[in-house]
């Protein structure tokens, strides 16, 4: 009985995160449109797109791995999300947080991309391996500052458990990692720019450069799964950042706590939207070099600062 309730809670939690992630995507599209001086699509456009892609009458598959690619990607998104506590101390939104879940989450962030790379490679279109090569190199590049920031945070709180890290930040706004360990937050926020894939790091999926990149052959429900995952994964990443650096969401009333989560994730996302709306796109080699220079240096400084000062 207990396991059924846990599953039910996980389903509710996943649904809320997916809907919030997709709504955020819709809001962001609207904001980009207003920056361009357009009206932009309605906020609920991502939901319509997902219904539309799932309702295609035929779907072309290119083999087993092609079939499994989106499944792996979605499993990566689910895995990332299910080990992050959305609301501190909540039974429904606590998910399956446990000791060492930071490492598990970092692994799952990479796992989905690798599965997708295998699947998209079987599509046979020359642009998809090109997109994959760019995507994986950019990912390896931004993982460096991100990992350094995580190591710094782990040293700071003597823990690899997200729940413990969030608990340590409670009490006052000055307890947030943002104020206790600002260098790690700067390094991680720069790597978030690469993770979210907005400009200047949008080379992987850039429609004008290599048409749409890895998912070029994905159609119908395959694409629908990828889009759903994009919503869930966006929410998962933002919630992870909120937990590690911005104090998490904690309130006795679950609705207030959800509202806090939404406000915080919205503003964390807005950081990469503001940067994305104001900067042009980097070429691949510029993007990799950028991550391996300043953010990496800041990440190393963050570790030194926490370990020796």
């Amino acid at each position: 009985m207990d396991i059924i309730i846990r599953i039910l809670y996980a389903v509710i939690s996943i649904l809320v995160a997916t809907v919030w992630g997709l709504t955020l995507t819709g809001i962001v599209r609207k904001i980009y449109a207003r920056v361009h001086g357009r009206f932009g699509p309605p906020v609920w456009q991502p939901f319509l797109d997902i219904i539309q892609t799932h309702s295609r009458r035929v779907a072309i598959s290119h083999g087993y791995m092609f079939f499994l690619g989106p499944v792996f990607r979605f499993a990566g998104g689910l895995g990332t999300y299910l080990f992050i506590p959305v609301i501190l101390g909540s039974t429904v939104f606590g998910n399956f947080s446990m000791g060492g879940d930071v490492l598990l989450v970092m692994y799952f962030i990479f796992f989905g991309q690798l599965g997708m790379a295998l699947g998209a490679g079987e599509g046979g279109h020359p642009y998809s391996p090109m997109g994959i090569a760019r995507g994986l190199s950019q990912m390896s590049a931004f993982e460096v500052p991100f990992s350094l920031a995580i190591i710094s945070v782990a040293i700071q709180y003597h823990s690899l458990n997200i729940t413990t890290i969030v608990q340590a930040q409670q009490g006052s706004i000055l307890n947030w990692t943002l104020f206790t360990n600002p260098l790690a937050v700067i390094a991680a926020m720069i790597s978030l720019l690469g993770m979210n894939g907005h400009a200047p790091f949008s080379i992987v999926m850039a429609p004008q450069e290599i048409p749409i990149g890895p998912p070029i052959e994905m159609n119908g429900s395959f694409l629908g799964i990828l889009q759903t995952n994009r919503g869930l994964f966006a929410a998962a990443k933002l919630i992870l950042f909120m937990n590690l650096f911005f104090g998490g969401a904690a309130h006795p009333n679950i609705l207030v706590a959800l509202l806090i989560m939404m406000i915080k994730t919205f503003f964390i996302y807005m950081f990469s939207v503001f940067v994305g709306a104001s900067f042009p796109r980097f070429r691949p080699e510029q993007s990799f070099r950028f991550f391996l220079k300043w953010p990496t240096a800041i990440g190393i400084l963050a570790i030194l600062y926490i370990a020796y000062l």
Binding site: F39, P42, P211, I216
Partner: peptide
């Protein structure tokens, strides 16, 4: 785009 119309670079989508 306000009517939900967007370009897709590949015929598959």
């Amino acid at each position: 785009s306000r009517f939900g119309i967007a370009g897709r670079p590949t015929p598959r989508q």
